[in-house]
Structure formats: C-alpha cells, structure tokens
Nucleic acid binder design. Structure first.
Lengths: 196, 196
DNA sequence: GTCAAACCATACGGTCGCGTATGGAACCTG
DNA sequence: CAGGTTCCATACGCGACCGTATGGTTTGAC
C-alpha cells in the first residue's frame, strides 16, 4: 500500500483502505491523518477534501470493513445450498482471511469507541445469527442451534486470536489447522436430526 | 483508582496498576504518563523517579498482568487434584475475570509492540500447554490432549470476545453461560479413557 | 537536630497530530 | 480557451504528551 508515485487522484475509498491497513498494523491509534497521507504519498489537503475529520474516516473505513466481512462473506457462502457444506466453508475461512481478522483483533481494543462498538456488535451478532440459522437449516431446534452457533463462533474467534498471538500453539500446517476446525464442525453437527 | 487524596508515597507497583487500569479502559494509547499522574493525584516527577521512561512502565505493567493471569490462576486451580474438576474450574473463570480479559483484548491491537507481542505469546502458549497437560492427566494421549486444548482455549477466548463485543449474542444469565461452557467441557471430555 | 536518600512538583523544549485557512493545480464542460 | 468544479499542498495555531532539568519535600538513620 506504500505508493511512492501516485498515478492519479485519490478517492475516499483509497483513504478508507489505507485506514484499514493502518488499523490492522497498529490499531486505531495508527489511523492518523498525517502518517496516512505520507503512506499515500500525498498531504492532508486531500484528506480534508474527502472527509470532514478523522472520525468520518474511521466510520467510512469501518463500514467498508463490515461490508466485506459479513455481507460479502455470507453471499459467497450462500451460493452453496447444503447447510452442512455452508458451515464447513464458513469455518474454513478462519484460515484464509488473515487481514480481516487482524483488523477485528485490533478493533477489540477500541470497543468503547463510539464508532467501533456498534460495528463490532453488529458483525458479531450477525455472525452468530447466521451460524445459528445454518444449524437450524441442518435441523436443530432453535435453542440448540443457537448454542452450537455460539460455541462454533467462539472457536472461530479464539482460533483467530491464537493464530495471531501464538501461532506456535496451533498445529503447524494449514492442513492440520483445517482438520482441527473440521473436527470441531463435526462435533457441533453430532446429534443432528436425520437428513430431511 | 481515582485517588483525590493520596495517603502516602506511591510505589512503582501503584503506577503499574494504574497503567493496567488505563490499558483496560483505552488500550495502550491510554497508558500516558501525564494522564496517569493526574489519576494518581500526583505529577510526573514521581513517575520519572520510579521509571526510566514510558516503555519501562509498560513492561512492568505487562509482567504484573502476566503473573496474575497465568501463574496465579494456575496456582489456584492446582489446589484441586482431580484433572476434570480442574478443567471445569479453569473454564468457569471465563465468566469471572472480566478485567483480565479486558486487558487482553486491549493488548491484541498492539501485538506488534516489542513488549506486548512476547507477553501475549507467552500467556497464550502457557494457557494451551496447561490445558493440554490437564487433558493428558485425564488420560488422553499427547496429540489428542493438545488438539482438545486448542479447541477448548479457542472457545474460552472466543467467548471472551463475544462477551465484550456482543453480549446480547450470548445467553443472558451467568448461569446459562456457565452451562454453555460446561457443555463444551463435557464434549471435550467425551471419549476420555476410563478413569485410572 | 543533621544529613542523606527517596520521592515529588514544576518549568521547559521538542515532537506529533489535529483542524482551519488559503492559494494553487488538475480536470471537465461548453 | 475560459471558467467552474474537484482536488490537493502548505502554513498556521493549538493541545497533548514525552523526556530532561532543577529545586523542593518527606522520610529514615544516626
């Protein structure tokens, strides 16, 4: 994302992307106007044309991230009709989406920020709701579907955290990590009502 | 921790505790010398007597937190001889230790900081190692013990995240949350070799 | 009470980052 | 090409925070 030569004018989206990069690297404190301008090889004149202030940039960046992390992920999973395959595919994404996860971990530190808290809440609730819906489609009654969803999403989130803080504590290869995640999905599917 | 009247001289530990408080509230950026001094009802003269610089305070605070979060927790759990009870007690702490968790989430945004990264790695690895040992004591072979430990710790961490970001996605009462955690421990203990 | 050590208060200079103001440059349309 | 719109560069003032320097206060030992 370091652009030593800028081809043309920057869009608000360019700035938002740079903000998400900074967020992933150093948390909310790294989303600073002047350092971002330097990375984009421009000055804050551009920034203040596109955004009223830093908070406006943060909000724009968060919405962008939320869209990518939920709507787009769910849309991609939903191309598959079978709920069990959907669950497996969704959980496999824990191993693929490193940057999205890095951003989320960074945001956890700023859950109290007025723009961050609501986004985290929405994305977390949406995730649990979606997984609960998938377990429901598999045939579990609502309460049971929800409990499994909470456990499953917890595993997903915790695995992400460990992958970032102590990768050596996890299996070495992606294959083994995937096997671990799959065995968790298997366990959560245990006791599933007979296929319709 | 706001002390409008200070009874006596501050220790380096007082400063470190104040730093941990700030960390929990606003992340690493909130660990700032002058605001901390204000909260302690003193000035940075005291701070610079006890610490060479801000980084020294951060390191001291992190070590203190690490001690509380691992050594002391494990020591308390280890007063119980039965590994299954130990596991249950350890997992129940996910619901009790709000502040410790708040600090950990805050630190995730600063994993790249030279003092933070190693502490997070150590505490994460130690946690997985300890839980793996407990599953080993229950009778699981090493590889299987480790896999269950990774899943269990992931649930623990993920549950913590959800409790902070979207508490409404979790069961409402502590009792129900504990039941959910217990059912997870149950599932992880499934297939345990016969008691010795 | 004296002295030394431990501790703290304040002033100062410097850097960083924010937001505002102002003028300039690039682009597009007629 | 001219004019208007979009976009950007820079200067400025301000506040927050850091670390250093200096002098003052408190505490403990003799």
């Amino acid at each position: 994302m370091v652009m030593s030569q800028r081809a043309s004018r920057l869009t608000a989206g360019d700035w938002a992307d740079a903000a998400l990069d900074a967020l992933a690297r150093g948390g909310l404190a790294a989303v600073a106007v002047e350092p971002l301008a330097a990375r984009l090889n421009t000055t804050k004149g551009s920034f203040y044309w596109h955004f009223r202030n830093r908070d406006a940039l943060i909000e724009a960046a968060l919405l962008r991230w939320e869209e990518r992390g939920t709507t787009e992920v769910i849309a991609a999973i939903e191309t598959e009709p079978d709920p069990v395959v959907k669950l497996r595919r969704l959980f496999a994404t824990v191993i693929e989406h490193g940057t999205t996860h890095r951003i989320e971990l960074s945001l956890l530190a700023s859950a109290g920020h007025p723009a961050v808290g609501p986004v985290l809440r929405r994305i977390s609730e949406r995730r649990v709701d979606y997984v609960a819906r998938l377990f429901g489609e598999v045939g579990f009654p609502p309460g049971e579907a929800r409990r499994r969803a909470v456990i499953g999403v917890s595993v997903y989130l915790g695995h992400t955290q460990l992958a970032n803080t102590a990768p050596a504590a996890l299996p070495e290869s992606d294959g083994e990590r995937l096997a671990l995640i799959s065995s968790t999905v298997d366990a959560l599917l245990t006791g599933a009502p007979a296929a319709p």
